[in-house]
Computed example of a mutant assay.
Amino acid sequence: MATPQPTQPPRAPWYARLATSAGRPAVLGATLIMSMPGEYHVARFAGWSDPWAYGMPFSLSAYAGIAAVIAATRPKGARGRFSATAGAAFAIALALAAQVVAHLVNTGHMNRDQAWLIAVTSMVPPAVLAHLLHLAATPTPVVTPLTSVDTPAAEPVVERIEQAPVLPPLPKQPPAAPQLPPPVKEQQPAPIVYRDPRCAAVRPLYDGGARPGTAAMRNALIAAGHSRVGDSTIRGVIRAEIEEHEPALAAYPPALPTTRTA
């Protein structure tokens, strides 16, 4: 019996697809434009003058969108996902509060010269900068997409039962000597292939039973002929990839600090 194939859902009409594809960027642009005046006025209330006050819409609306995208694209349990989710929620709350405060002040329902309003607004740009740098320094795990191959339904198998011929009984044979199992060969672990070749210069530092510091890893990279790199690259890229292949290395105690290379 043939296996019934799943039916495809009906395709949406062209105008519905057009509204979905073209409507989303149009709505995004319209909401950003509508949010800019309120966030600009809040910055002016806090004491910023032109043209610096125009940076507040990017610090609130754009930051909220960036944090929301990072929170949605990182897999569950990945480093930085909780921080991105909390930052997205906080940024959206700030953007909403800026609109409410600006309209309340402009309509006369709220006094603009309030200390708490000025203090909270003044903390927005450095807080946004600090969180974006934190998200940028957190390595994004590489997720390999899964592929599936549809196999056709197998043809029905018809079993045929054939009667085996009757053979005469065999004479008694002496018991065979027990055979010893072949010796088990120890399997050598496959060598690790790093995506970043600089990891090979840093990996021997773990052989002493301690987790190397940033200065020791930088000295090993320079001794191996690599160019000088920043601390975030050493910790967030090179050391993160080494401990991704060997998670037990992350539990090593920290090594004693070494002298930094000038």
Score class of each variant (00 low, 15 high):
residue 107 T to E: 07
residue 111 N to D: 14
residue 93 A to I: 05
residue 123 M to Q: 12
residue 113 D to K: 05
residue 70 I to M: 10
residue 43 A to L: 07
residue 64 A to G: 13
residue 94 L to S: 09
residue 74 R to D: 01
residue 105 V to F: 03
residue 79 R to I: 01
residue 123 M to F: 06
residue 67 A to P: 02
residue 110 M to T: 02
residue 114 Q to A: 14
residue 85 T to D: 00
residue 107 T to V: 11
residue 102 A to R: 07
residue 104 L to A: 15
residue 97 A to M: 12
residue 44 R to M: 08
residue 71 A to C: 06
residue 90 F to K: 10
residue 100 V to K: 08
residue 73 T to A: 11
residue 71 A to E: 00
residue 100 V to D: 05
residue 61 S to L: 07
residue 97 A to Y: 12
residue 86 A to P: 00
residue 118 I to H: 14
residue 87 G to P: 01
residue 44 R to P: 01
residue 75 P to G: 03
residue 73 T to Y: 02
residue 75 P to R: 01
residue 121 T to E: 08
residue 81 R to P: 03
residue 62 A to K: 01
residue 86 A to Y: 06
residue 111 N to L: 08
residue 60 L to I: 10
residue 91 A to E: 05
residue 117 L to M: 15
residue 108 G to Y: 06
residue 42 V to W: 00
residue 105 V to N: 06
residue 68 A to L: 13
residue 61 S to R: 09
residue 43 A to Q: 07
residue 122 S to P: 00
residue 58 F to S: 15
residue 88 A to Y: 00
residue 42 V to L: 15
residue 122 S to D: 06
residue 72 A to N: 09
residue 66 I to E: 04
residue 50 D to C: 03
residue 44 R to Q: 11
residue 82 F to Q: 14
residue 87 G to L: 03
residue 98 A to Y: 11
residue 82 F to H: 08
residue 106 N to A: 15
residue 108 G to A: 07
residue 84 A to D: 01
residue 122 S to K: 15
residue 109 H to D: 07
residue 109 H to C: 07
residue 107 T to W: 10
residue 87 G to V: 04
residue 74 R to Q: 03
residue 58 F to P: 00
residue 95 A to V: 10
residue 49 S to C: 03
residue 89 A to G: 09
residue 89 A to Q: 08
residue 64 A to F: 02
residue 46 A to N: 04
residue 104 L to C: 11
residue 109 H to E: 05
residue 110 M to D: 01
residue 108 G to Q: 10
residue 117 L to I: 15
residue 90 F to D: 10
residue 113 D to Y: 02
residue 58 F to V: 13
residue 70 I to A: 09
residue 93 A to W: 03
residue 59 S to Y: 12
residue 42 V to F: 00
residue 122 S to T: 15
residue 64 A to E: 07
residue 101 V to T: 14
residue 73 T to D: 05
residue 111 N to G: 05
residue 54 Y to R: 14
residue 99 Q to H: 12
residue 79 R to W: 02
residue 59 S to E: 11
residue 95 A to P: 00
residue 76 K to I: 04
residue 83 S to H: 05
residue 120 V to P: 00
residue 50 D to S: 13
residue 82 F to W: 09
residue 107 T to A: 15
residue 99 Q to S: 13
residue 78 A to W: 07
residue 118 I to R: 15
residue 72 A to C: 03
residue 106 N to K: 11
residue 73 T to N: 04
residue 92 I to W: 12
residue 115 A to Y: 06
residue 71 A to G: 11
residue 92 I to G: 02
residue 43 A to T: 02
residue 71 A to D: 04
residue 94 L to Y: 01
residue 90 F to I: 08
residue 64 A to W: 11
residue 100 V to E: 08
residue 111 N to F: 01
residue 104 L to V: 09
residue 91 A to G: 14
residue 81 R to N: 00
residue 74 R to V: 01
residue 89 A to C: 04
residue 94 L to M: 08
residue 119 A to F: 12
residue 70 I to C: 03
residue 122 S to V: 03
